[in-house]
Design a protein around this nucleic acid. Structure first.
Lengths: 248, 248
DNA sequence: ACATGTGAAAGGCTTCACAGCC
DNA sequence: GGCTGTGAAGCCTTTCACATGT
């Protein structure tokens, strides 16, 4: 890759950090590696081999090594990777040192739960504002935050310099909310509402549709059922499973 | 329908539908096509072109046609696809005509919301049982269902012939719950707990980790920020966005 | 005329296998 | 000896462009 620089921050030339362009598939796995590394660090491990980390993250070691090689050369041959250093590098690449501010729009059934989800805070994100269009919900306190009216989004987004917007509204209003977020300067959206959002190309959208996940599982149930019904019918389990992680 | 015999229903020999083996990438998109088709059906459309359906589903038309071609030949050249027929075919392939029973384990913050999520029922899934290990939660009623103790999982899973288990527990207990589900005969799991599950190879696991989604967005924020800081600095939006759907 | 279905080309990702380094 | 980093091979997915059918 660029130039290596063992102890130091990934290839910066003179204050400007040059960005290694990682394959999307790699990016999607870095968070999982990071979680596994944190877990290892807690158990006191100082270094870990590609084999060990790969197992903890649920991938094979060749893939892991290739992924990490894109970040630069942070392992030691014959030894493995320094856990603390790798944590630092991955957090840097993912921009987690910035402790990004997140807002959530739509405090219904699902939104309510997301507002209180401990996993966000513990992994580098601060939920700083909640919005809803329903006057009856405005003013309600959830997890220490007051629900604000959606009309105040523009102002508050600027005040809090919000980086990421989470949409948890019914499908019908998701596009309107996305437009409002974008108008407020938000360029990253996590969308829980079914359906497609149309956004300018500088905005990144990730979509989580819970029903789609079940439908994909349903397909595999259907497939498995149709196989057992056939001549060469299988029935016995083999070993060690196929985990299909969600994430593009 | 089943014996459409257009170009031939995907190889059925004599009543037993042999399973077309679809690429995983295609499977992951079928639910989105289905949602778009239902939407079109509501607006009264009888047929739709690959161009039209692709736009509604947020993909390009070549990809859509290739995907649908794997199901068989259900379009008419010069005309397009029959909406009702395509809905039926996709629902059949996904096994949605089976109205599968789902159970949910872990009625905490997130689990509580999932138990009440209307999107499941409306898209072919019945949540039929809720479980938790916490005695204080057992007996609680959520959305018309009583929370049961996890020790009753085995019995109830059999009674209700549960097809899919959803795990919404803290990370520490997810593997135990997965083991229990598998022992109870469940072969499809949707896991919301961070971390990797180890399961036999006949079990399918899909994983949704909300923090990971934010971390991926954070990466893109970081990348965009580092680009605008560079010489050839961009700033202007182009058009029509990049939607990265989540789904392996 | 129009829109599907599909070979063929292009691109991306994963896996292999081993050279290079500790 | 052991383990990383990486070219090369193989596989999967997307895109192109057009023959085919209505």
């Amino acid at each position: 890759m660029s130039q290596q620089r063992h102890g130091s921050t990934p290839g910066e030339t003179d204050g400007v950090p040059a960005f290694p362009d990682l394959p999307e598939a790699t990016i999607a796995r870095l968070p999982e590696y990071l979680r596994a590394l944190h877990h290892l660090a807690e158990t006191g491990a100082e270094t870990v081999s590609s084999e060990g980390l790969a197992a903890a993250a649920g991938v094979n070691s060749a893939k892991l090594r290739k992924d990490l090689s894109h970040l630069g050369s942070y392992g030691t041959r014959g030894v493995g990777y320094d856990v603390a250093l790798l944590v630092y590098q991955i957090e840097y690449i993912l921009g987690l040192d910035k402790n990004r501010a997140v807002c959530l729009v739509g405090v219904g059934n699902l939104g309510h739960a997301l507002a209180g989800y401990a996993g966000f805070a513990s992994r580098g994100f601060r939920v700083v504002a909640l919005f809803d269009a329903d006057e009856r919900k405005v003013g309600e306190e959830i997890n220490g935050l007051i629900v604000q009216h959606i009309d105040d989004l523009q102002r508050i987004a600027a005040e809090e310099s919000i980086a990421i917007g989470v949409i948890a509204t019914p499908p019908g209003t998701a596009q309107l909310v996305a437009d409002a977020l974008i108008a407020a300067g938000v360029t990253s959206i996590l969308n829980f509402a079914p359906g497609v959002l149309s956004v300018p190309s500088n905005v990144d959208v990730r979509k989580v549709d819970l029903a789609i996940e079940l439908q994909i599982l349903s397909f595999h149930e259907h497939r498995k059922a149709s196989l057992t019904a056939l001549p060469g019918g299988r029935s016995a389990p083999a070993e060690s499973g196929n985990q299909e992680a969600v994430g593009s």
